[in-house]
Every structure is written in C-alpha cells, then in structure tokens.
Amino acid sequence: MQLIFIYAAGLIFGLGISMSGMGNPAKVINFFDVFGPWDPSLAFVMGGAVIVTFFGYRAVLKQPKPMFEPTFSVPTSKVIDARLVGGSALFGVGWGISGFCPGASIPMLGSGNSSVLIFTASLIAGIFAARWMMAVTQKRKALRNTTAVNPAE
C-alpha cells in the first residue's frame, strides 16, 4: 500500500517535470540566458513548486507522524561550509553546461531521448567518483589523526 502512494508521488512529480519544461534543456538554459533568448518560465516552475511545498509541508508536519512511518525524517544539519557551497557551485556549472538537473533528467528518461540517457549515465559516474574521493579524503584524515595521537607508531 505504502509503495503505491510513493509510486504516485513519483508519478505526480514526473508529470510536473514533463509539463513544466524543466526537463527541456533549451528552456532551462534560456531561463539563465538573460542576455540571449530569455525565457522566464522556469521562475514559475520554481515558484509553483516552492509555494505548494511550503503550505503542504506546514499542513503535513502538523501531524504527529507520517502515514506509514513512525517519524518524520527531515534533514537537521545547519552547517554552512565549503563542501556545501563548493558542491553547489560545481553543480551549477554542470547544470549550466548540460541544461539538465537530476530531478528533471530522471523522469525524462521515460521519454526515451538519448541525450537524457547520456546525461544520467554521466551523472551516476559523477556521484560514484565523488563518493570515492570523499572516502579517500576521509581515510587520509583518519590516518593523520591516528599518527597525531600516537606519534610513536
């Protein structure tokens, strides 16, 4: 039962992406091209999505718990660091080059367009590459900490 609702959530989201033009790179890039063939449509997509989510979340989060889970699990981190800003900055560079973001490319895979497939495959490669780099830095940091604590080793 739960999975049907979650499937429906994905379907409504995907239909919204399809209708909005968010999954059309030409439209996305034109939104950011204020000195070119500017198309302000994307502002209405973001506006519509944020307004509905803002009021929807307020109503839903007043409930003691979600329908199928014991608790709500919303992100709690408040840290604003170089990782957040640097990562977001890099994401923007990629979005500006390709015109696709993850939430738009996943539904558009269903349209069968080959560019979407190429983008999504590279996206997945990038996610794995970043995770690997993060694991390497973490291991190095851990190694440095143990040598600092135990200089004799």
């Binding site: 609702f5 994905g10 209708m19 909005s20 449509s41 997509v45 509905v52």
Partner: peptide
C-alpha cells in the same frame, strides 16, 4: 534554440512537482 514563454504550464507543472513532494512527506515522512 528559442523557446516560448509558457507561464501557465510552468506554474501548473511546478505545482505538481510540489504536490508529489508533499505526498512523499505525508506518506513516508
């Protein structure tokens, strides 16, 4: 490629994106 300004389908599409987002919070939290 030039694209047409489509405020209505953009806003309705955006609202649907929001609706799907809220439905996931409502069901799975």
């Amino acid at each position: 490629i030039e694209t047409a300004f489509t405020p209505y389908s953009a806003a309705i599409g955006g609202a649907l994106i929001g609706l799907g987002t809220v439905l996931l919070m409502w069901t799975r939290g």
